[in-house]
């Protein structure tokens, strides 16, 4: 199964990179932009005999909580697709 994990700065925590980009957009004529946040995408593949979607979901959630994201400073979501 193909997994795409999205990691973003936790809501309510200032993202210095996002803030810098947000400040530069008006210089290009893009006004009214707010809430710029810069995160990362992590792609991975999981295989396993008889791996169910539910079991894959549980595994990915666990790896996000323990390593791929730091829940104290980051939020995460992910998508799983058969591949």
């Amino acid at each position: 199964m193909n997994v795409r994990v999205y990691v973003t700065p936790k809501k309510g925590i200032l993202d210095p990179q996002g803030a810098a980009v947000e400040r530069s957009l008006p210089n290009l004529g893009f006004t009214g932009v707010s809430g710029v946040q810069i995160g990362k995408i992590i792609d991975l593949t999981i295989t396993g005999d008889g791996l169910t979607a539910a079991a894959a979901h549980e595994q990915v959630d666990d790896m996000c909580r323990r390593l791929l994201a730091n829940p104290i400073i980051e939020d995460y979501t992910f998508e799983i697709s058969e591949g």
Binding site: P9, I13, L14, D15, P16, Q17, A19, A20, I72, I73
Partner: peptide, 10 residues
Amino acid sequence: PGGLIRNTGL
């Protein structure tokens, strides 16, 4: 407790 993120000055 807490976390350490990018310096505000980048």
